[in-house]
Amino acid sequence: MHALIYAAFLACALLLAHTFVGYPLWVWLQARLRPQPIAKASQFPKVSIILAVYQGAELIRAKLANLETLSYPPEQIEIIIVCDGCTDATAALARNFGDPRVRVLEFTERRGKASCLNDAVATATGEVLLMTDVRQKLAPIALRELVANLSDPDVGAAGGELLLVDARSGFAHSVDAYWRYEKLIRYSESQSGSTIGVSGALYALRRDLFWPLPHGTVLDDVLIPMRVAAAGKRVVFEPRALAWDKLVQQPLEERRRKIRTLAGNCQLVQLEPWLLSPWTNPLWFRFASHKLLRLLAPWLLLGLTLSAALLATRHTLCALALVALGCGALLVVLGRLVPVLGRWLPVRLAVAFFYMNLFAAQALLAFARHRGLHLW
């Protein structure tokens, strides 16, 4: 029995180490030792900017004004606004904005972002699609830099970099630390081949590589890149294409969004089972390491804790693991009780790790209980 428990301890420890350290280190080394350059070049094909909006009256004018600042030939841009059952003035404000490039598709029934994207792309005339959200501000060169990646015939999609600003709480600093870690992984994936996801706030792809999304799809910014990769094209990360958004300041503000996003990974597997197959998914190892194992991580942590506690008096390694877990928990408690400590890097990392796994556990349970996810 002790041998079985110790084997479970080692399995949990190794899988956790691979998920949070081994895999990031592996793609980082690949990017340094065997980089795959991108043949970027200036080009200006027609671009359809697609913006799916629900109740965006407070933001739509600022977003359209921001899109007018893009350093790209104006005549090569069309802007398609899809109002998904908006009951506010979003559609009227967009129509009256005064930019002839703006087209508004208005639907009285709320159907979700995926259906909005499908309808917008069906009417798009651009060779390139730029997906963005209403909340984030884009850098003037963002579109130009993304499109430059598509001059490489091996590149099918390019994602921009989302910068999170206005960290005023310890939790916000923790979210920022986690996001920097995540972007480092994405950049390494891109430099060594393809990243498995992009930021929904800003990404571009070739029009002919978009296929209609299943109704209710939550993570278009993962499914679309995975389909691009399955078609034999690279998905790259462009750090010069910037978008800005504000950080959330407290866990409750982040909880709903994060649980929905993490549960979206479960939904992807349900909708597209080919993602689980090494024979049909060319990015299978990256998808499993970067997405699926993170959903299992809280349960691996639970298994590690229980097995370490049972064997702490028999195996030094188990005792050390239990001490490390206890120190991590203490840092989380200190970060919550003494907010000023929230900016100290060890506390930031511990708090980010704790909430990431807490939300992952809740997401898996939520999806198991109720397979339908909120449209927005």
Results as ranks from 00 to 15, higher is better:
111 R>W: 03
110 R>D: 05
177 A>K: 13
107 F>K: 06
117 L>H: 15
97 F>T: 10
207 R>M: 10
185 I>C: 07
121 V>W: 08
105 L>A: 09
173 H>T: 02
209 L>V: 08
151 S>F: 02
183 K>I: 08
156 G>M: 04
118 N>V: 12
101 R>E: 08
153 P>A: 12
115 S>T: 15
197 G>A: 14
167 A>D: 07
115 S>P: 00
178 Y>W: 15
187 Y>V: 09
175 V>G: 05
138 L>Q: 13
145 E>Y: 00
129 L>Q: 06
103 R>P: 00
169 S>A: 06
130 L>F: 14
130 L>S: 05
183 K>C: 11
125 T>A: 13
203 Y>I: 01
190 S>Y: 01
122 A>S: 15
171 F>E: 04
201 A>R: 10
147 V>C: 01
180 R>P: 00
168 R>H: 14
125 T>I: 09
186 R>N: 09
150 L>K: 09
126 G>L: 07
170 G>R: 05
168 R>L: 13
99 D>S: 14
160 G>W: 02
132 T>A: 07
123 T>Y: 05
169 S>I: 06
165 V>P: 00
197 G>S: 14
200 G>W: 03
212 P>C: 10
114 A>F: 02
151 S>Q: 11
164 L>T: 03
201 A>F: 01
179 W>G: 00
156 G>R: 10
210 F>G: 02
192 S>F: 03
114 A>N: 02
183 K>P: 01
178 Y>H: 13
168 R>V: 11
139 A>L: 06
192 S>H: 04
150 L>M: 07
96 N>W: 01
196 I>Y: 01
103 R>I: 08
107 F>N: 10
104 V>H: 08
189 E>K: 13
112 G>H: 09
133 D>N: 14
127 E>C: 03
206 R>G: 01
204 A>W: 06
129 L>D: 05
188 S>V: 02
123 T>F: 07
144 R>Y: 03
172 A>I: 12
111 R>K: 15
174 S>T: 01
116 C>N: 05
175 V>M: 14
191 Q>K: 14
139 A>W: 05
114 A>C: 08
142 A>G: 00
104 V>D: 04
120 A>H: 12
150 L>E: 05
202 L>F: 11
181 Y>W: 15
148 A>K: 11
148 A>L: 07
179 W>K: 12
150 L>N: 04
111 R>F: 03
149 N>E: 12
156 G>T: 11
146 L>N: 01
173 H>K: 13
135 R>M: 11
105 L>D: 05
144 R>G: 04
136 Q>I: 02
153 P>L: 12
152 D>H: 08
117 L>S: 04
165 V>F: 09
170 G>Q: 05
117 L>D: 03
203 Y>E: 00
96 N>D: 15
211 W>E: 15
141 I>M: 12
180 R>A: 13
184 L>N: 11
157 A>P: 03
203 Y>C: 03
164 L>W: 14
98 G>C: 08
161 E>T: 13
105 L>V: 06
200 G>K: 08
137 K>V: 13
119 D>T: 15
144 R>M: 04
104 V>G: 07
187 Y>A: 15
100 P>S: 14
202 L>C: 13
164 L>S: 06
